[in-house]
Computed example of a mutant assay.
Amino acid sequence: MPAKDIYHNCVKIALLKDGWTITDDPLSLKVGQKDIFIDLAAEKLLVAEKQGVKIAVEVKSFVGKSEIEDLKNALGQYYLYDKILKYLNSDKNLYIAIRKAVFQRLSAETIGQIILSDQNLKLIVFDPNLEEITRWIN
Rank of each mutant, 00 (worst) to 15 (best):
N9F: 08
E69W: 02
G32P: 01
L27P: 05
D127A: 04
E67P: 01
E67M: 13
G32L: 02
A74T: 10
L46T: 10
V47D: 09
L45T: 14
A14M: 10
N9T: 14
V31G: 12
Q119W: 10
D5V: 09
R105Q: 12
E58C: 05
D24T: 01
A74D: 09
L85I: 11
I137Q: 12
K65E: 08
L80E: 05
E58N: 14
Y81V: 02
D25S: 09
A97V: 01
L80A: 11
Q119Y: 09
C10T: 15
E43P: 09
S117K: 13
P2S: 05
R105L: 07
S66I: 09
D25K: 06
S28D: 12
V31T: 09
A56L: 11
S61A: 12
L71V: 03
L16P: 03
I111S: 12
D24L: 07
T23E: 08
K65Q: 08
L106M: 08
N120K: 06
I6V: 15
V31N: 15
H8L: 08
V102I: 07
E109P: 02
I96T: 00
S66M: 06
I115T: 11
I55E: 08
S117L: 10
D70Y: 03
D39Y: 09
K17Y: 15
Y95I: 02
I84G: 03
K83T: 13
V53T: 07
G64K: 06
V31P: 14
V57L: 06
V63C: 11
K92F: 02
A97F: 02
K65W: 04
A101P: 00
S90D: 03
G32I: 02
T23L: 05
G76P: 02
D91K: 12
I137E: 15
V59N: 05
Y87L: 14
R105F: 11
V125P: 01
V102K: 04
A41I: 10
E67D: 07
L123H: 07
G19V: 07
L80G: 11
E132G: 05
D127G: 07
S61Q: 08
S117R: 04
N9C: 03
L88Y: 02
